[in-house]
Amino acid sequence: MEKYIFFGLSGLAIFSAIMVLVSNKPIHNLLYLILCFMAIAGHYLLLNAQFLAVVHIIVYAGAIMVLFLFTLMMLNLNLKLELNKSLMARIVAFVSGLLLLVTLVIILNGLVIPTPKTATTQIGMTRDLGQVLFSEYMVPFEAASILFLSAMVGAVMMVNKNK
């Protein structure tokens, strides 16, 4: 049962990730990317990381994709552009990507991690994550808020620069 869900979600994610590269209209790229993110949220649920699944949908499909969509609508990109590189560059990129894949899989397969029998672990629940986040990782949490503030100020400054 889990196997079918896993392979179904993985196939959907990889298919839509490839379609992000293949399709040439930016709006189609964006919609396929959202599909890919939904499949990844399903993977989080399969890992019993429920808080991460919900946060992933809210942050990516909710916030970041809407940001992309607004940018896309502001840019008015219906001009005819060949937005791929030359054939030679594409072949080289593809080959180097495959080499990277082989390297990653070989390196990471050297890890020996025993597989737990069932996903009975409760660490993905909101309560347990919150306890860890607000006790052990309090200082990085506050630093993240400063990072957000600086990103917000930077974005507003840059867009308003020429006024």
Binding site: S10, I14, L21, A89, R90, G97, V105, I113
Partner: peptide, 26 residues
């Protein structure tokens, strides 16, 4: 639910990462 072996996740995430790399390059 039973967990899948970690190798499957490694392979799946590596493929997704490499698709991203190729996208940046091309």
């Amino acid at each position: 639910l039973k967990l899948m072996p970690i190798d499957y996740y490694i392979a799946f995430c590596s493929i997704l990462f490499v698709i991203g790399v190729i996208g940046v390059l091309i």
